[in-house]
């Protein structure tokens, strides 16, 4: 716990991996951030049918491991499903990974990594 305490102070952004509508909506809310040049790193990734899983994983890796300024990673549930093994093995407290519903895929609590852990813990 000691490392994370110093760690999370700088985490002031949210990141999002989602379909176009989710990303647009969240950007409208004002979470979009592009780091100053020359990096020009975005904190969002639009995923469509053409995006391959490797790109999603890479973005997930970048948001959760490499970048130290992200506190919450939002990911559409149907996209999380595509890299489910990564999500399920992700146990760090920071940044928090949150599965969110998308417009065309209603939220299914059964699939959520955290909720499944909850269930498992209480043997429900």
């Amino acid at each position: 716990m000691t490392t994370s305490q110093a760690d999370f102070r700088d985490r002031q952004f949210l990141a999002v991996i989602g379909d176009e509508d989710s990303v647009t909506g969240l950007l409208l809310a004002g979470i979009g951030h592009v780091t100053p040049p020359p990096d020009n790193q975005k904190n969002f990734l639009v995923v469509d049918a053409k995006t391959d899983n490797a790109a999603i994983e890479a973005a997930f890796e970048r948001f959760t491991t490499e970048r130290k300024d992200i506190g919450i990673v939002l990911i559409n549930q149907h996209i999380a499903d595509r890299i489910r093994h990564r999500i399920d093995t992700y146990t760090q407290a920071f940044p928090t990974v949150l599965e969110i519903p998308s417009k065309d895929h209603p939220y299914d609590p059964e699939k959520d990594s955290v909720l499944r852990r909850v269930r498992r813990l209480f043997g429900e």
Binding site: Q12, D21, G32
Partner: peptide, 20 residues
């Protein structure tokens, strides 16, 4: 029409931030 692309391109600096 769809404003998605324009929104994505005009995102610059986060207005909505978090602190712990």
């Amino acid at each position: 029409g769809n404003i998605g692309y324009q929104i994505q391109e005009s995102a610059r600096s986060a207005r909505f931030r978090i602190r712990a």
